[in-house]
Write a protein that binds this DNA or RNA. Structure first.
Lengths: 212, 212
DNA sequence: CGAGCGCTTGATTGAGTTCAAAAATCGTGG
DNA sequence: CCACGATTTTTGAACTCAATCAAGCGCTCG
């Protein structure tokens, strides 16, 4: 599906938006494609715009003082990705935004965002609720990182983002969960022993139980 | 200092605000005092308002599935405290907000907030930058929780919130850092051996260097 | 077709937890 | 102001989870 169609579907599913309003969005957002492995932003650069992921998937990560990568977020289709701190303060970013699949993005710079907040009611609304959900998710992740075991965190992730698990390499998942690839491999082995996997060619089981 | 004076100082230090605007804020925010140990919000209740802490200190915490407490945030004077999720969705909160010192608050309900966002330029501005800073702090805490050792996290906290360390009991600090009280005690012992503390009353003995 | 990358498996190690109990500190009533 | 009980904090010992180090295997992609 074309990038702007994904965007349109995204908003129609959440808020009411007129054709005029969408035309405005279309005029301020700039399409851009990234090949898998290409970067939208590197640490040290100053972020120029936020991105709506229409197709594909990106990851954002930091590199800590010991040179180790830590994945902060995955952003598959219909996710937004931005370093708002760098964007607003013009300070160098701490993050890398890298496409991990061939991806289509729609970019929105600071003035464009202001324009949409002012002139597109549904945008402002969706932006606000998005921030709020995002903040709540971060709180949960903090508590989970500090209190849950590696296996519990993996199972949580499985429940919360079932679609992502199948798309990203295991070592990225491990990085996101804050565990070593070896540990994740062992966790999966244990789980598949205890709760045996459905056979690999069989009927679609249909039970992707929805998270809340 | 009286609660509204603290609020006034808070805004004057960050944005420009007219007397009329501040009069409006005064009219929509409701003072409330909490004795140490009293709750502003309990898990299961629906949050009714955000709070500005003018004096004292609160903590917010959740209780996980195993019945263990996890402190999510400390809120000393000039901090804001709110469960925006519960506030906006009218869903039961996951959090407890408890005063850990006798505290003076100024409460702001949903409509009051909307009013201020609309009519007080500086409020909307400060609200937005506040959200942004808060989100960035959470990202840092996530990465830190996943990558740093207990000692590193403690030192980070010491640097970031030096004033809080002296005010809260150690077991609360441990809960915030996601480590056991015993571990925090041992960390402090090690640090004071390595980077000797000023002596408590007696002669400084000189050489504490009995390394392991 | 070979090299490298990702995943697995095993062995070892270490940071941090848990359990238990002593020592220090705090607050409250007499 | 002191004493007593209740929290906190400290200390010790055993144990656990997950990291690290080290091979080995199987793909794929160049």
């Amino acid at each position: 599906m074309a990038a702007f169609d994904v965007l349109h579907a995204f908003f129609k599913a959440r808020v009411t938006i007129t054709d005029d309003e969408f035309a405005l969005m279309r005029s301020v957002m700039v399409p851009r494609s990234l090949a898998s492995g290409a970067f939208l932003l590197r640490a040290g650069e100053i972020a120029q715009q936020a991105a709506f992921v229409a197709n594909g998937c990106l990851r954002s990560y930091t590199v800590d003082s010991k040179g180790k990568e830590h994945i902060v977020q995955f952003a598959p289709e219909t996710y937004w990705l931005a370093d708002t701190t760098s964007l607003m303060t013009r300070a160098p970013s701490q993050f890398f935004f890298e496409a991990i699949e061939d991806s289509d993005l729609l970019l929105l710079d600071g003035p464009g965002h202001e324009r949409l907040v002012r002139d597109v009611r549904g945008y402002a609304e969706s932006f606000r609720t998005g921030l709020q959900k995002h903040a709540a998710a971060k709180d949960r992740r903090i508590v989970s990182a500090m209190s849950a075991s590696a296996e519990e965190r993996y199972l949580e992730f499985l429940n919360t983002y079932p679609s992502i698990v199948t798309r990203v390499p295991q070592w990225m998942l491990a990085s996101y969960l804050g565990i070593s690839p070896e540990t994740l491999s062992r966790i999966r082995k244990n789980l598949s022993r205890r709760k045996p996997r459905r056979a690999r060619g069989g009927q679609p089981s249909g039970n992707e139980n929805q998270s809340r």
